[in-house]
Design a protein around this nucleic acid. Structure first.
Lengths: 238, 238
DNA sequence: AGCACATAATCAAACGATTTATTAAGTCGA
DNA sequence: TCGACTTAATAAATCGTTTGATTATGTGCT
């Protein structure tokens, strides 16, 4: 029998009736995978939501895992460009870190697409807890370069030639604060609804994270000054 | 043939009263639920790991969800006491926030139990992405009081009578940094292994987070001063 | 002590339901 | 007619759950 994947890609022709079956499938699969996880998401459920039949998954992606890989690896191209030059050496720190945070918070585009980016972020957060083989590729191809660019930015503003472990740790703390707005969204709504519901909440949050980043960077720079009567232990052995 | 002394699994201590079947079940279920999620974890897999019969789940917990609830709600009693008085008004800020961070990082007890606490934390992180009914109880009974105590601590050190949304946001950022050491552990190992592997990594991380918290608190206090010669953008009103 | 009975715990086997993967035939527009 | 796509049905595996039997332990009665 002919293998289902070696057929020419059918997404070439734009149908007059909106997104193709394949596109709808990927779109709804992203939302359902993000909401319920890979195992709990059923192929019937996905196909029904997308308005396609069950056999379409095999037809377009071979199997369920192929569809999942597509939802995971598909948006990385957009993600790469979304960060667009945040580590430009000519940029002030606040502007650079703002460009870095904005896509993570889903602020590159407005309204509808923001929900889509939130779903992709949830997928990534799930994969952080339980990495799959496909995600390792994403890390190496996308996240690792972004992380290197971020630590480079931080090291530069700390007047360091090379980033060390403390810079890495600072970088993790910064992205953690941004991740949290996807991770604990439901809990925020229970504990402090105003943070999410007040007017211009996203803009405020972005401003806030930029301020936090500035404060942590200043803290890091002060920590590295030669005179250091700080509460941090001075025995930096190894 | 099989006497009750020679248990079928190596994890059971020799002697008449090792961990009971119920305890082993909960213990291994916690690890598997944390690693794979509720839906992907199979009852057969759990029982095989615990060295008990499949029917034990029904016998002890009714069904799979009852076992899951036990793994989720069981450790909350310990968690409540683990934070033990971190918001004592007589405590300096650094000491209070240190007592708050330590249990999250799994530093209340050493070695073996730390892995157990990490698993419980992973379960909670999964529930943050995809809250179940059982988790809502945990939030209301455990997390909400802890969050209120944290915002109270922060508001006090900001000389505020009542916490506002900005204080809540600061609190979320602080716990996010701590959560991240459970969430993106695998990714840290790929991107910057030294952060996790260097000697006394956990102690250093705790010190680091305390320093970050101090820096962010100072930033927040400075932001609230009427005169504001800070590097934070001048349009910080709103 | 000896016997009968009750309870708790565990076991192997199987049940019914649901899942994904797969196939064959059909529809419809260009 | 050809290719894109749908429909319906089946196969095969796996899932959570349930059952009935079995062992170990305890308990009360004579």
């Amino acid at each position: 029998m002919s293998t289902p994947t070696d057929s020419p890609v059918p997404c070439a022709l734009p149908g007059p009736s909106g997104p193709t079956a394949r596109e709808r499938l990927v779109r709804h699969a992203t939302g359902i995978f993000a909401a319920k996880g890979f195992a709990a998401a059923g192929t019937r459920e996905i196909c029904e939501a997308a308005g396609v039949n069950i056999a379409s998954i095999r037809y377009y992606f071979g199997d369920k895992e192929g569809l999942y890989r597509e939802t995971l690896l598909g948006p990385i191209a957009e993600a790469i460009t979304a960060f667009g030059g945040f580590d430009d050496p000519g940029l002030p720190f606040e502007d650079g870190i703002r460009r870095f945070f904005a896509p993570i918070l889903g602020m590159t585009s407005d309204g509808e697409d923001a929900a889509s980016e939130t779903q992709v972020m949830k997928l990534h957060l799930r994969e952080m807890l339980e990495p799959s083989g496909a995600f390792r590729e994403v890390v190496e191809q996308t996240i690792a370069p972004a992380h290197r660019a971020l630590v480079g930015l931080l090291a530069r503003h700390c007047a360091l030639a090379e980033p060390d472990d403390d810079i890495h740790q600072l970088a993790f703390a910064l992205v953690a604060m941004a991740h949290d707005y996807c991770l604990s969204r439901e809990m925020m709504r229970l504990l402090a609804p105003g943070v999410l519901d007040r007017p211009r909440a996203r803009e405020r949050t972005l401003d806030r994270l930029v301020g936090f980043a500035r404060a942590l960077l200043d803290h890091e720079r002060a920590r590295r000054l030669p005179h250091d009567p700080e509460p941090t232990p001075a025995n930096a052995d190894r």
